[in-house]
Computed example of a mutant assay.
Amino acid sequence: MKSPFRHCLFACLIPVAAHAETYVVGVEKADFEPYFFIDGKGEYQGFARELLDAFARDAGIELRYRPVEPASLLGELLDGRVDLKYPDSPAWAGEAKAGRSLSYSAATVDFIDGVLVAPLQQGKGIQHLKRLAVVDGWTPEQYREPIASGHLTQVNTGDLRDMIRTTLKRQADGGYYNVEVAIHTLNYRSSSTNALVFDAGLPYSRGSYHLSTVRHPQLIERFDRFLQEHPLEVAMLKSRYRVEENINSEFVGLEQWKVDHIKRQRAKAER
């Protein structure tokens, strides 16, 4: 005979599991691989998804991802339609955030926005940069003055692939974008492997991506603890997705295989 007490106890436990903390993360509906992208099934994927999923497992919570057009994502957060926003940065959209109290996590990953050029043009200096291909919606802050003064012509392009094509066809001398995303697209999503390279001799900017919220600062604190307590897991994810590949070394912007080649050549020369 089944125990009524055991049956009641089991039934009482079901609602507890069913009501685990659930939060909606507003994410960019964009192809920004390897950081993040939306797959063919409409699912959010990439480095950011794996990192946030790892946090959710560790914290015993559920995160649901809501892809939103980038231009509308901040409004979704400020209006309370999503609980969290990724990516975000304290440096972004200052006017739109004025008067609002947002909490930001520690940096999840660092990035560089810069100019990619043909390999033979690398290192020639800004005097050889006359036309700069820029994706619609992007603002190359380091080049505002030369563009405004007419010393540099901005060539507008619809998306990353259009920017790459424009630069490869020499309709522009360089293309401005997130370096890791552009290199990933060139080397893994096109037939133009290594056709463009990052030129660290030209002005570029560094930044970092953060998780943000208006209503749940305590969740940001929990996320920060997760980052502090799991540095190896985070580092392994970064390595697997190549999201910070050599951006903090003399080999800034280079892929690992190129770095290894340079180091082998140096070692031979020193023998």
Rank of each mutant, 00 (worst) to 15 (best):
I126M: 05
P217K: 12
P90C: 11
Q45C: 12
V24T: 15
V24G: 05
I183A: 07
F223S: 10
K2D: 02
R161W: 12
L63N: 11
S105V: 04
N156W: 15
S103I: 06
R271Q: 14
L78F: 07
N246E: 06
L51F: 15
A54S: 15
A235D: 12
G125N: 02
L102G: 08
A148W: 06
D162W: 01
W92Y: 12
R189T: 03
I164Y: 01
A11C: 10
L84C: 08
P231W: 08
P70L: 01
L202F: 02
E233G: 00
E245P: 03
E145M: 09
R165M: 11
R242S: 02
E145N: 04
K41H: 13
H7S: 07
G114W: 00
R6I: 10
Q218F: 06
L74N: 11
G174Q: 00
A18H: 12
V181P: 00
G158R: 14
C8N: 14
V82D: 05
L77P: 02
D58K: 08
S3T: 09
R49E: 12
D31V: 04
L237R: 05
G42I: 09
D199V: 00
T193V: 14
R242G: 08
D224Y: 10
F47H: 13
H230F: 08
I61N: 02
F36C: 01
A269T: 12
T108W: 06
C12Y: 14
R225S: 11
Q218H: 10
I112V: 15
P140V: 00
K130M: 02
R266N: 15
F10C: 10
Y241H: 07
P4E: 07
R100P: 01
S103N: 02
Q218W: 09
A195N: 11
